[in-house]
């Protein structure tokens, strides 16, 4: 037996109908390796509503409750209440939603679930746009990105607004645990999932989920681009455990242009725009280091 760095047991079957190189497939695979088979998922409209396959196909070895787009927070509250009412123990209730379903249309229900301290894990797999509907901008699309609804053109109408900071929003709810994870760092991912599982209350996991068609890159680069997101400090890996922030992977400090240049969605950016992204990333990274050192 070769020793693997993440649990060898699989909770997914091959034959998912996700695109080749889909980051969201990896997010689910690592998540379930961390959570195990006593997991019940609530999944709204998103890529993952389609990826298990047409009825009667399910690519997961755990149950799924499909819900309406904005309903994930309510779905996990309902599941948990029913299991509590029925005395069903040893079950991890998980909301698993995309970025649009989380930071846009599902934010209210998520906020409600967090405020009610629903005993569940909420995972946002963030491919930074409405990908299932064909790459329309969401509140999680980063500044400067091309999407089909920020198509550039003569007016250079790319995404003009920065990405919504969901981690800060969730932290403001005073939840017990929040963490960022990357498909390039499965060991860190699985460890955080396991930790989230061991806690009570609403735990939040933000997973960057590269999307080859949406990010305009070739599918073999999914893991590489996720690695660059961490190394450039654009998507730092950290956790906030009971209010204390800890960076779990420092990254090399690679220039952000290395991350941007392999994605077609940023190909129109000029040097000064890249510099401005770099500046923002550096500032945010410095703030994160400061927060870590201050223990907040």
């Amino acid at each position: 037996m070769t020793k693997t760095t993440i649990p060898e047991e699989e909770f997914t079957y091959p034959g998912s109908t996700g695109c080749p190189g889909c980051g969201a497939n990896l997010v689910m695979r690592y998540l379930l390796k961390g959570l195990g088979d006593r997991t019940v998922l609530s999944i709204p409209a998103c890529c993952w509503a389609v990826m298990p396959g047409y009825w009667p196909s399910n690519c997961l070895k755990v149950p799924i409750l499909y819900t309406a787009f904005e309903a994930t927070g309510a779905g996990i509250s309902g599941l948990r209440a029913a299991y509590d009412a029925k005395g069903v123990k040893d079950v991890t209730v998980v909301g698993f939603a995309g970025d649009g379903g989380t930071v846009d249309i599902g934010l209210q229900a998520l906020s409600g679930a967090a405020e009610r301290q629903t005993d569940a894990i909420y995972v946002m797999y963030d491919n930074e746009a409405y990908m299932n509907t064909g790459i329309q901008r969401s509140g999680a699309t980063p500044w400067g990105a091309w999407t089909t609804t920020t198509p550039g053109g003569a007016t250079k109408n790319y995404k003009h607004e920065p990405k919504k900071d969901i981690m800060a929003i969730m932290q403001a709810h005073g939840i017990p645990y929040a963490a960022t994870v990357s498909v390039a760092h499965p060991e860190d991912f699985v460890k955080k999932a396991q930790k989230a599982k061991s806690l009570k209350g609403l735990r939040f996991i933000h997973a960057l989920s590269p999307c080859p068609p949406g990010w305009r890159m070739s599918p073999q680069l999914t893991v590489e681009v996720a690695r660059l997101a961490v190394d450039t400090h654009l998507f730092p890996l950290y956790e906030i455990d009971d209010g204390r922030l800890r960076i779990t992977r420092k990254g090399k400090g690679t220039p952000v242009k290395e991350y941007l240049k392999i994605q077609g969605r940023f190909s129109h950016l000029d040097e000064s725009q890249v510099d401005s992204i770099q500046k923002t990333v550096d500032e945010r990274w410095a703030k994160l280091l400061k927060r870590e050192s201050e223990g907040a």
Binding site: P56, S57, N58
Partner: peptide, 16 residues
């Protein structure tokens, strides 16, 4: 519709 069959029914290798 309750999906209870493994997705191994989907021959996704044909996409390759």
């Amino acid at each position: 519709p309750i999906s209870d069959s493994p997705s191994t029914m989907n021959m996704t290798g044909l996409w390759r």
